[in-house]
Simulated assay, not measured.
Amino acid sequence: MKRTNVAVWAVVALVVLYLAWAMIRPMLSALFFGAVVAYAFLPVHRRLSGKVGEFWSSILLASLLLISIVGVAIVAVMTLSDVLSSAYAYTTDVFEWLYSIGLPVSVETSIKNFQVQLLPLLQERLLSYTFSLPGYVIQSLVFLVFMQYLLVNSSEIRRYLRELIPTEERELAEDLVSGITKTLDALVRSWLLLNLFKGLVMTAGLIIFDVTDTGGAIVGGLLTVFFSFIPLFEGWMIWAIAAWVLVRDGFLLKGVLLAVYGFVLVSPLPDYTIRPRLVAKEARLDSTMVLLGMIGGAMAFGIKGIIAGPIIFNLLASLVREWKRLNRRRRSKG
């Protein structure tokens, strides 16, 4: 009888877990980004909580993000067609430029085969984004609700996680968590948020200096964010190309001013002035892990993997480093 009851409850539990996963799976991207943003805004939330309380602090931050999301949605509705057209046109221009530089026949043939496969896929993806605004609204709602929930319950969540750690291993676990937290701080605040800021600044610069239309400027900003995630490339590539285009077209002063603007506000100066202030001295980011994480994350999880992959890889590296450090410390004591 007892075995029968256990089997019944096991089946019920499996069914409930399956149904829960089926409901959560479509929201994974929104939940993931909600957790990342909640973590990024946690220091601000703690300062505000001392003045207005945890609940109203979380509501205020969620409201500010709601305004930002509505703004992004309005810009997307107004410029989506231009952005998608610019993205497709720039991709085509890159291939045409490659064909014009006199590559070996075998290399050119390989590039043409790649283009034949890429452009239809790009058209399909761009068309799907055109009809994704309703989904964007729903995902944004899930994102905001989950972010607000994590912020308002951040103290309880922290207490609960602390209670899960066995007392005899608490010192070890706290040291590991401390090292991982520093790495996560560096990844989210100095890597992710700073790169997004660079993209916004680059978009504004392309519009201010009249390099391209709004759609092209947004594409340039997105490319700045993308290249800022890749070691050696960084965001300077976009302002350098834009400045060269202006100089080539006879706008020497605009080109020089854009180069100064990009150097000071996009890359590389912010990497040496702003980024070190945001990263703890003990935190170390492996650029190879960032690149591999982007590639592997995108292959495994889609677009959210571009951000999730580097975080997972660097957290793994941080966990290994802290484990080795603690083992060395234990051996020295012994």
Score class of each variant (00 low, 15 high):
140 S>V: 05
118 L>M: 09
75 V>E: 14
142 V>E: 02
87 A>N: 02
132 S>E: 06
139 Q>L: 06
80 L>K: 12
69 I>M: 12
124 E>F: 05
142 V>Y: 02
91 T>R: 01
104 P>V: 13
98 L>R: 11
67 I>L: 15
73 A>N: 14
53 G>A: 07
82 D>K: 06
142 V>G: 01
103 L>N: 15
115 Q>Y: 08
107 V>F: 05
129 Y>W: 09
68 S>A: 14
144 L>M: 05
112 K>I: 11
70 V>F: 10
91 T>I: 07
124 E>M: 03
88 Y>H: 13
117 Q>P: 02
95 F>G: 02
93 D>S: 14
80 L>R: 10
110 S>A: 15
84 L>P: 01
76 A>R: 15
111 I>C: 07
105 V>F: 08
53 G>E: 09
132 S>P: 03
105 V>N: 14
69 I>T: 08
66 L>E: 06
109 T>D: 07
130 T>Q: 11
122 L>C: 05
78 M>N: 12
59 I>W: 04
124 E>S: 08
120 P>F: 01
137 V>P: 02
125 R>D: 03
134 P>G: 06
94 V>W: 07
140 S>I: 05
126 L>D: 02
59 I>Q: 06
96 E>Y: 10
83 V>R: 01
132 S>L: 04
101 I>W: 07
94 V>Y: 07
98 L>N: 11
85 S>L: 12
79 T>P: 02
83 V>H: 01
65 L>Q: 14
123 Q>P: 00
55 F>A: 13
117 Q>W: 06
86 S>P: 05
105 V>S: 15
141 L>R: 01
130 T>P: 00
72 V>E: 13
144 L>W: 01
94 V>A: 11
52 V>R: 09
70 V>I: 15
76 A>I: 10
79 T>C: 04
141 L>E: 00
72 V>N: 13
118 L>T: 07
56 W>P: 03
63 S>G: 14
88 Y>Q: 13
92 T>Q: 07
92 T>L: 11
101 I>T: 08
59 I>P: 03
88 Y>E: 09
142 V>K: 00
124 E>K: 09
144 L>A: 07
71 G>E: 12
121 L>P: 00
114 F>M: 08
112 K>G: 12
103 L>V: 10
63 S>E: 09
127 L>Y: 04
88 Y>F: 12
81 S>P: 06
135 G>N: 01
84 L>S: 05
82 D>Y: 03
131 F>I: 06
117 Q>Y: 04
52 V>D: 05
103 L>E: 07
135 G>A: 03
99 Y>E: 09
68 S>N: 11
133 L>G: 10
114 F>K: 06
122 L>W: 01
97 W>R: 14
70 V>E: 04
67 I>P: 04
115 Q>W: 08
66 L>S: 14
115 Q>A: 04
112 K>R: 13
104 P>E: 11
106 S>G: 03
107 V>T: 11
107 V>N: 03
52 V>G: 04
114 F>Q: 12
58 S>F: 02
60 L>R: 00
103 L>M: 12
82 D>P: 03
71 G>H: 08
99 Y>T: 04
111 I>F: 14
81 S>E: 15
121 L>M: 11
76 A>M: 10
126 L>K: 02
98 L>H: 06
87 A>K: 00
119 L>P: 00
80 L>W: 13
105 V>I: 15
68 S>E: 09
122 L>D: 00
